[in-house]
């Protein structure tokens, strides 16, 4: 999984691979073995190689989060998502609004792993609930909708990418 962030005006790209004990992270030329020890209430406790770290996070918007680590406060913004794979609107992993309405709840965040049929987003249109569910298992790669926002028919809402196994 590839993550691209904008921090203090510079772009940082990170790749995480699943690993028996956690993840392997590639950041530039550096490689780290990552083990998540504890995640609760916006607090992450994890191990990079042999060293333990703590980070505190808070979301301002789905794409903008505040992070505190080792005495520093950083604003981390998700860089614009690059389209890969299915590029046509309405492709299997590209979920669009079936009718105009309002986004009532976004149930996932970018990077979440989801299962087939899992509800991802709830819309309200003409007093009706519309549930947008995952067409297949995968990873959420992009969120284009915000809670409370209005959408038109066929607007792109969520992108789900299948994880190659």
């Amino acid at each position: 999984m590839k993550f691209t962030y904008q921090i203090n005006g510079a772009e940082h790209t990170l790749t995480l691979e699943k690993h028996p004990e956690g993840y392997r992270a590639h950041l530039g030329t550096a490689i780290y073995d990552v083990k998540l020890l504890h995640a609760k209430d916006g607090q992450l406790h994890f191990q990079l190689d042999e060293t333990r770290h703590t980070a505190h996070l808070a979301h301002e918007t789905p794409a903008k989060r505040w992070l505190h680590n080792a005495g520093r406060t950083l604003v981390i913004e998700k860089a614009a998502t690059h389209r890969r794979g299915a590029d046509t609107a309405g492709g299997s992993g590209r979920l669009t609004a079936p009718m105009p309405g309002q986004v009532r709840a976004v149930l996932v965040a970018v990077g979440n792993e989801v299962t087939a049929g899992q509800p991802l987003l709830l819309m309200e249109a003409m007093k009706m609930e519309i549930r947008i569910a995952a067409p297949h298992a995968g990873c959420i790669t992009a969120l284009h909708a915000t809670e409370g926002g209005s959408v038109n028919k066929d607007d792109l809402l969520i992108e789900v990418e299948e994880i190659p196994t």
Binding site: Y5, L14, V34, L36, F46, L57, A109, N112
Partner: peptide, 16 residues
């Protein structure tokens, strides 16, 4: 930017 901060951001996304 410390590597730990960037990795933490990614971990947070995965375990949002």
């Amino acid at each position: 930017i410390p590597a730990a901060a960037i990795i933490a951001a990614a971990l947070a996304e995965l375990h949002s």
